[in-house]
Simulated scan of single mutants.
Amino acid sequence: MVRFEDLALFVRTAACGSFSKAARDANLLPGQVSAAIQRLERDLDIRLFARSTRSLRLTDEGERYLPYARDVIDLLHAGRDELRRDDEALSGTLFIAAPSDLGRNVLLPWLGEFRRAHPRLDMRLQLSDQVTDVFRDPVDVALRYGAMVDASFIALPLAPENRRVLVAAPAYIEQCGMPRSLEELKNHSCLLWQMAGRLYDKWVFPTTKGKATVHVKGALACDDADVVRRWALAGEGIAYKSWLDVRADVLAGRLIVVLPQQPGEPAPLQMICPHRRQFSPAVRQLHGFLRERCETLAGPL
């Protein structure tokens, strides 16, 4: 008979790509995970993984079986959650992925407050500006900026009116001057973000005629958005950031809004779930909590 624990470890191993990573996530030894997979393979009489000393990959049978295993686990979790629906004491483990800057500087204190309200709930936070695959990675929810065009998952709005904003430190403005138009950004040191080898050096702004794209340049670029913000605070140049990420710095005077009359590109914040069967009580309550906190943050001045 197939064990639920073995099935869950199979799904986690497929997402992690190795026994050791799956073991760390589940707080087990790699040998325990390997034994669980072997046991599941015996129960099913199929080979789920092709193993070598350097790699681990799903077999064709494993690829075909994986979505069914996910569905079984989701269905069992949904049944458990339905039984606990009236229980206000959240428990279990919630896996959350979030962008680096938002996660470190905005989300952390909020999650601390949420955790204190639900002490039986464990949380695992993954901070990265790489786009999390909510279907393959071991996360329950992911926070993302931007409009969601993929209809294969569910997007729950958190800050639908959020926009990007140009900011720089007072020291930079004093030394290099305040740009008077979007065109003048080309003459300034701009702080750039990159991901997967792509440099985001074309900044887009809405206009009455549609949109304007400015090709900017700068000597500094990083794949961690929090580093870009820190460079701006250090007076290294102009950054184009989400208002949620720099709001506290602007209100404290550490950063100045550049071209305040120019609207920035929309950057709505969403909470992403693979599908509605993962709307556990913890996910539902976290979404309501975070949306309430985001609503208290005013838009760009």
Rank of each mutant, 00 (worst) to 15 (best):
D6I: 02
A8H: 12
T13L: 08
A14F: 09
A15P: 04
C16A: 14
S18E: 10
S20I: 09
S20D: 10
A23T: 04
D25R: 14
D25L: 15
N27V: 09
L28P: 02
P30V: 02
V33Q: 04
A35Y: 09
R39F: 01
L48K: 00
A50V: 06
A50N: 13
S55F: 08
L56Y: 09
R57D: 12
R64Q: 13
I73N: 03
D74C: 10
L75G: 11
A78Q: 14
G79T: 01
E88S: 14
S91H: 11
T93N: 10
L94N: 05
I96F: 01
A98E: 06
D101H: 14
V106P: 02
L107I: 07
L107T: 01
W110L: 15
F114D: 05
R115T: 12
A117C: 03
A117V: 00
L121M: 04
S128R: 04
V131D: 11
T132S: 10
T132F: 05
D133L: 11
F135H: 14
P138D: 13
P138Y: 02
P138W: 03
V139G: 04
D140L: 06
V141F: 06
D150N: 15
A151T: 11
S152W: 00
F153I: 00
I154K: 13
P157V: 06
P157G: 07
N162V: 03
V165D: 00
P170I: 03
C176F: 15
P179M: 07
L182C: 09
E183Y: 02
E184I: 06
K186C: 12
M195N: 11
G197L: 09
R198M: 11
R198H: 13
L199W: 06
F205D: 02
F205R: 10
G210I: 10
T213Y: 03
V214P: 10
H215W: 08
K217L: 01
A219T: 10
V228K: 01
V228Y: 05
R230P: 01
W231S: 01
A239S: 14
Y240D: 15
D245I: 04
V250H: 03
R254G: 01
L255Y: 00
P260V: 03
P260G: 04
P260M: 05
Q261N: 08
A267L: 14
M271N: 11
R276C: 10
Q278N: 10
P281I: 06
V283R: 06
V283K: 07
R284A: 14
R284I: 14
G288Y: 00
R291M: 12
E292I: 00
R293N: 01
E295F: 02
T296L: 15
L297W: 04
L297V: 15
